[in-house]
Amino acid sequence: MARITVVGGTGYAGSNIVREAASRGHQVTAIARTVPAETIDGVTYISGDVLDPAVVQRAAAGADVVVAALSPRGTLEGKLVGVVRELTAAAQAAGARLGVVGGAGSLLVAPGGPTVAETDGFPDAFKPEAAEMAAILDDLHASDAALDWFYLSPAGGFGAWAAGEHTGTFRLGGDLLLVDDEGNSTISGADYAQAFVDEIERPAHRRQRFSVAY
């Protein structure tokens, strides 16, 4: 059993990871600005703002794995890179592994590029978010070699608007965007969470970004 703290544990990706980890018997703490009306059995919920350094330190204290399941939106727009840097430092100081819910925008559509965010069809409105998530990945690659981290990029079609089902069947990849025979790139929230918690239980991508899709 691992002690897992999920920062952003009530969002789409975070809540799926919390549910999956708790179902496997891990000791799970979810940190978010507000505690949801419906909670998951066995999960400890803590209300806190990650822009408060004390909340970041609390997230790492006593954890085996700290999960950053945050998006650069709302109050975190333009600030997430700094927040994850603080989480990274806190996790390393606590001797915890860091897992990051990444973005798909920095994945390559072909060997050598371009990235998904650089393609003509990528919406301008999402480019700042993709840039922030890419900067977080760059920071991790440049981090102290003693830091144990992983960054899991979802398929292109990942989000609450396409929640999907828990199939238990998916593919893992590297820096290339995974697509099916029809060119679609999708993954459900539950299957993304399964891949994420699998990595926590059986580390195979230390200090690496990897990806998941059908």
Rank of each mutant, 00 (worst) to 15 (best):
Y192L: 03
T169A: 13
F210N: 00
L178H: 03
H26M: 00
A193C: 02
A160Y: 00
V35A: 09
R171V: 01
A22W: 06
V83Q: 06
G74I: 13
T186L: 11
D120E: 15
T34I: 05
T29D: 05
V100E: 00
A69C: 10
W149S: 09
R171E: 12
L108K: 08
P114T: 13
G103E: 04
S185H: 08
A61L: 11
V66K: 01
V101Y: 10
G9A: 08
E20L: 11
T5K: 01
E86T: 03
I187P: 07
V55S: 09
T29I: 07
P53M: 08
G164E: 09
I40S: 02
A59D: 07
N184K: 15
A213N: 06
V50S: 02
A135Y: 01
G95M: 04
S143T: 15
R202L: 09
S153C: 12
G11C: 05
D139C: 07
G8L: 06
L137A: 13
A94V: 06
P128A: 13
A131W: 04
Y192H: 04
T119L: 13
E165Q: 15
D180R: 02
P203M: 03
F126L: 14
R19P: 01
G14F: 10
D138H: 11
G156P: 00
N16P: 03
A59P: 12
P36E: 11
V101M: 09
L70W: 05
A145V: 14
S211Q: 03
A104Q: 10
L147A: 11
G62N: 03
R3A: 14
A21E: 04
T88L: 14
G11W: 02
P111G: 00
A90R: 03
A90T: 01
G99K: 01
A21S: 12
A30T: 08
N16A: 15
G157I: 02
V116W: 10
L176G: 12
V7N: 04
I17D: 01
I31G: 08
L87H: 08
A104D: 13
L98D: 11
S211E: 06
T5G: 02
A117K: 13
A195Y: 00
Y192W: 09
V212E: 04
G95C: 05
A160M: 10
G25P: 12
D41E: 14
I4H: 04
E165T: 15
G189K: 04
E38Y: 01
G168N: 02
L87Q: 10
T39I: 02
L147T: 11
